[in-house]
Amino acid sequence: MTAGIRPGLDRLRQAWALFRQWSGDDAYERYLAHHHAAHPGQAPLSRRAFIRRHHHERFSSGVNRCC
């Protein structure tokens, strides 16, 4: 029984993860992962500082909304 449900649940979990990524809900977690990998030993930005920079950049780099 559980063997039948598990793949379905995994799939749902994966879809939810993709949805969070699309919406930007997990942006800070992804930033932390990238930061620890790329700049080990350096202190990362705080959640608040990161999200402000993140949003500022998103709307300062060309066309991302259209007619």
Binding site: L18, Q21, W22, H34, V63, N64, R65, C67
Partner: peptide, 25 residues
């Protein structure tokens, strides 16, 4: 670079791209 160049799952990119092109037009 973790900022503007970020490898992203294809369906997430699809969602971003569609949301960006679909406006009131």
């Amino acid at each position: 670079n973790g900022r503007d160049f970020v490898p992203t799952h294809r369906w997430v990119v699809f969602g971003h791209h569609f949301a960006a092109i679909a406006g009131p037009g």
